[in-house]
Design a protein around this nucleic acid. Structure first.
Lengths: 191, 191
DNA sequence: GTGCTGTCATTGAACTCTCAATGACTATCA
DNA sequence: TGATAGTCATTGAGAGTTCAATGACAGCAC
C-alpha cells in the first residue's frame, strides 16, 4: 500500500477559515464548560455520566450491555467501566451478569437513577435551550445539523483513511519495539 | 431582586432541536477527540496546552502575564498554572517575575517551545482542514462562524443573567453555611 | 501609616479520562 | 478435543481539570 510519507507544502487556513475555527472552538469550549458546570451543580455528575443515564433511560427495560452502552454514549469501555462504578456507588445504576454471555455485564438504570435523571433533565434542557436554540433561527438549526453531519463524516473518513491506518500500525509497531520514538517529531502522520 | 424560583412547564426540545443538539454534541466529541489524540501523538501535549503555546507565540515578545494568557486561551488560572508548570519542565516556556507588579508572573515561549509548536502546527492544521474545511462549502463555513458567534453570545447572556447570578450567590452562601445542600435537588437554577 | 478589600498566582486534593495490561470467556478451525 | 485468536469488561497507573484554600501583593479609604 502506498502512503504519501513526504508532506507537501502545508495548506494553512485562510483568514476566514481560521476565524471560523477559532470561533467554533471558543463557542464549544464555553458552551460545554457551562453545561458541565450546571450538571455538576444540579446533579453532581459530569456531562458524560448524564449521557450514560440518558441512553440507559431510552433503552428497553432501561438496561443495556456494557459494550452497547459504550457505543451509544460514544464512550470507551474503560471510561464506561469507571463511570458505571461511580454511578453504582450512588445507587443510580445496577450491574448484573448477562444471562446469554458469561463475559458480559448488563447495566440497568434504577428508579433512583431515573428520578435523579428526570430532575436534572428539566433544568439541563432549559439551559441548552437558552444557550443554543433561543439564539438560533430555525434556519440556523438546520444548518447546524447539516454541518454537524458533515464534520461527523469527515471524522469517519479521515480516521479510516490509509494514512491514519498506517499511522496506527506504526504506533502498534512502536509499542512492540520499545526503542522506536514513533512519529513524534516528523511528518507522515497527517491523519 | 425578584427571581422566578418556580419553574414553569419545562420547554422540552422539539424533535428537530433534539436531533440537532445530539448531532452537534456527537460531532464535537468525535472531532475534538481526534484532534486531541493527534496532538498527543505528534507533540505529547493536550489541545489545551497547544492553545497556550499558540497564544504565546502570537503575543508581542512571545510573552504574556499569566492572567492575560488565561483569558486569551479560555482557561482558568488554576489550569494555566498547572499547564505552564508542565510546559516549563519541558523547557518550552519560561516564567519570570513581572517587573511592574510583584504579584505577577510573565510566561515566555522559548525557542524550543516555538520550534515544537511549529512542528506540531503543520500536521495539526492539515488535520483540521481535512476534518472540517474539506467537508464544508464556503457557505457553510460562513454559517458555522455565525452560529458560533450566536452560541458565544448565548453563553455570555445566560452566564450574566439575574438567575445565574442568583444561583452563584446561593452557591456562595451554601459554601458558608455548610448544612445547606444548595440547589442540588430542586429547580430555580436554570442558568 | 493602618486596615480593609480585591487581585495575582500557586498548591493540594479529589475526580475524570486515557492507556496498557489483565482475566475470563467465546468462536473458530484443525 | 485442543489450540489459537478475538471479544467483554475491569483494573491500576499516569496525566489533566476543577475546586477550595492559601500566601503575597496592590489599591483605596480613613
Amino acid at each position: 500500500m502506498l502512503v504519501p510519507v513526504e508532506q507537501t507544502e502545508t495548506r494553512w487556513l485562510s483568514p476566514v477559515e481560521q476565524q471560523a475555527w477559532r470561533a467554533f472552538m471558543g463557542a464549544c469550549r464555553r458552551l460545554f464548560a457551562e453545561v458541565e458546570g450546571h450538571l455538576q451543580h444540579v446533579a453532581g455528575i459530569p456531562h458524560a455520566y448524564y449521557e450514560i443515564l440518558v441512553r440507559l433511560s431510552e433503552a428497553p427495560g432501561r438496561e443495556l450491555r456494557m459494550t452497547q452502552l459504550a457505543d451509544v454514549s460514544i464512550s470507551s469501555k474503560s471510561r464506561l467501566s469507571h463511570a458505571v462504578a461511580r454511578l453504582e456507588e450512588r445507587g443510580w445504576i445496577e450491574r448484573t451478569a448477562c444471562p446469554t454471555d458469561r463475559r458480559g455485564q448488563v447495566a440497568r438504570l434504577t428508579d433512583e437513577g431515573f428520578a435523579a435523571l428526570d430532575t436534572a433533565a428539566k433544568t439541563h434542557v432549559e439551559q441548552v435551550r437558552q444557550l443554543i436554540f433561543d439564539q438560533l433561527t430555525p434556519l440556523q438549526v438546520g444548518q447546524l445539523l447539516e454541518i454537524s453531519a458533515a464534520i461527523e463524516a469527515g471524522v469517519d473518513s479521515v480516521s479510516s483513511s490509509p494514512a491514519a491506518q498506517a499511522c496506527r500500525a506504526a504506533r502498534e509497531e512502536a509499542a512492540a519495539d520499545l526503542d522506536d520514538p514513533g512519529c513524534l517529531d516528523g511528518p507522515g502522520c497527517p491523519g
